[in-house]
């Protein structure tokens, strides 16, 4: 399959599309944290970095099998999230955002200073393992998991916490436990995405995982529509591919990118697909038509 795609598509586009898949996985993870549960996280790139470095070090320095390293990358990121989440998640709103940003920057600086990560020189010699087919298979798995979560008892509790944490607690939800779980799961997907990223780009440098990357992830989620799975996929696609389409504008590319972000927010403040719940509309119409039929039969 990969070979087939490579024969009909330019390798550059395959690389861009594969990277898009990697970002979708990470953005869906952030969506669970910020979109569904309402916790501001401005440091998502750090968990992405933990997964990337964790997996790459395992495959490069310890000859770990790739799939094991992929899973390990996710687990390491989730562990980092639990360690950071315990103190940080007592804060809410902008304060939580700024503390997650702070932890993100600290992780980056630590990676910059460690020997095992290669420090500022970066980590090279990573084998190419992330094929477009593998990445998009995992995108589908992620979409399934997120969809299943959002339609479960677990996911409902997360939305309730976002909507009103005091009422959620009064309804019997242990909000601190759920926040930690949501944070860890979201970061697990960031870690898996990071591991894929490492084995796609084959070279890692701490400067790639700064807060600019965290804000990029946040933009994917907010521009697409917080809490909406199709929205996040659309938002990530638009923002990842836009610079490619704007390539002809060469130097003006990033200038227009910034202006586009402002304009998109002004004209769609809830994101491209924010506030659209197709599932609810389907259920509602089904119920309405059933209710209509029963009254018609009764009358």
């Amino acid at each position: 399959m990969s070979a087939f795609l490579e024969s009909i598509l330019d390798p550059y586009y395959i690389q861009v599309l594969t990277l898009l898949g990697v970002y979708i996985i990470a953005a869906l993870g952030l969506n669970l944290i910020t979109g569904v549960t309402g916790m501001f996280s401005f440091g998502h790139a750090a968990y992405f970095a933990v997964g990337a470095y964790g997996a790459a070090i395992l495959t490069v320095k310890y000859q770990f099998p790739f799939y094991g390293a992929l899973l390990a990358g996710g687990i390491m990121a989730a562990l980092a999230a639990v360690i950071i989440g315990f103190p940080a998640l007592r804060l809410t709103g902008d304060y939580l955002g700024i503390v997650t940003l702070g932890f993100g920057e600290i992780i980056r600086v630590v990676f910059l200073n460690l020997d095992i990560t290669g420090g500022a020189l970066g980590l090279a010699g990573i084998a190419k393992e992330s094929s477009i087919v593998l990445v998009y298979t995992l995108v589908l798995v992620t979409i399934y998991v997120m969809y299943a979560l959002q339609n479960s008892r677990f996911g409902r509790a997360l939305v309730a916490i976002r909507e009103d944490d005091i009422a959620a607690e009064a309804m019997g939800i242990n909000i601190s436990a759920y926040k930690i779980k949501a944070f860890a799961i979201g970061c697990f997907f960031a870690g898996v995405a990071g591991a894929l990223y490492a084995h796609l780009l084959l070279f890692l440098n701490p400067t790639d995982f700064g807060f600019a990357k965290s804000f990029e992830f946040l933009c994917f989620v907010v521009l697409g529509g917080l809490g909406s799975i199709p929205g996040v996929i659309l938002g990530t696609s638009v923002l990842t591919l836009a610079p490619e389409f704007l390539r002809s504008l060469s130097d003006y590319r990033m200038l227009i990118y910034g202006a586009l972000m402002v304009l998109m927010m002004i004209f769609r403040p809830n994101g491209l697909l924010g506030g659209v719940d197709l599932q609810r509309l389907v259920f509602k119409n089904k119920y309405k038509s059933q209710a209509g039929r029963s009254t018609a039969a009764g009358g």
Binding site: T34, L218, C219, V222, L226, G258, V262, M265, P269, N270
Partner: peptide, 27 residues
């Protein structure tokens, strides 16, 4: 224009403005 919108929407607009100004100066 975003004063009545969510905090995150205004924040993203701020990040967009920041990218715009940096690149304007670089150009």
């Amino acid at each position: 224009p975003l004063r009545k919108s969510t905090r995150l929407a205004a924040l993203i607009s701020a990040i967009g403005a920041s990218i715009f100004l940096q690149n304007a100066m670089m150009l």
